[in-house]
Amino acid sequence: MTVTISNTSAGESPRSRGARRFLRNPAAVAGLVFLAALAAVALFAPYFAPQHYATDDLFSDYRPPALYGLFSGGEREAAQDGRDSAQDTSARQPPGASQDASAYWLGADFMGRDLLSRLIYGARVSLAVALVGAGISFALGLLYGITAGYLGGRIDNAMMRVVDVLYAMPTLVVVILIMVYFRAGQPEHFTGIKATLYRWDSALGGMLFIFVGIGITSWLQMARIARGETLSLKGRDFITGAEALGIGHWGMITRHLLPNLLGPCIVLETASIPGYILTETFLSFIGLGVNPPMPSWGSMINEGYQAMRSYPHVILWPVLTLTATVLAFNFAGDGLRDALDPRLAE
């Protein structure tokens, strides 16, 4: 008996046919390649970044990108750099850090930190947020939704009531409450679970509670969709058939329901990921982002928006990268959606 819905006339398996269709979509492939490259750069950030993200040089503050020099006569721009407040300290010798202008391909921020390096390290936060949001959404939402839909009746009713209540929570208020709560006090005085959580959070540069904040709400939509799909699958012949064969609940869920649900759920998730990434930006804006000096795209945008007219490059790069990343997720997601949809004609 076949597990997946098989209404294809060709002998080819739906999975390989999906892969083929995906590969024929150039936008989807480009999106996937971009994401893979980004993940590699983020993972091996120390090898790709020219400098450490915290290395500063107050004499290179707001240095324009060396990249600009390639397009316009070179030296003129570099000579101008950020040194507009020619006051007494300018005469002093710069304290240490490298003075090689070519190091700053994308320019520098308010304290002369290399933007390219910060962008590369910052990718870790955005990708981690996307991954964790999606992970929790799948692990919790999918299972929850299938269980509710599969068991049905009173249990389903009660489970969905919980989702309703959580759905009605003002997400941001809850996220802020949780983050303020956990970031209050000092780690030295924490005990038990709070201490452990805090250690993890510090190790992650303050990302843990961003994950928690995004995680608590990301799975709700998924739970709803998964439940709905399960309900509609339950009526299908192959499920009733499997039931007649006496397959247990667990087997039913893992072997029959899950594989059929995956398609629509993956599509839903790729549409939600930009939301997670943007939530991190918002949290940075209200001061609940990662701990400085650890960079994230959100905190970089937040540092740059007020200087949009003076130093547009500070905000330009993180916005461009963020947009490109969201675009990539969308194209890959759309490609996946088209590839997995059995009803789409060739």
Partner: peptide
């Protein structure tokens, strides 16, 4: 169309708002 749509969604409001003003 997709590109425009995604552009609209992916520019954070923190950047979009000052840009619109500018």
């Amino acid at each position: 169309a997709t590109f425009l749509a995604v552009l609209g969604r992916s520019i954070p409001t923190i950047a979009l708002a000052p840009l619109l003003i500018l």
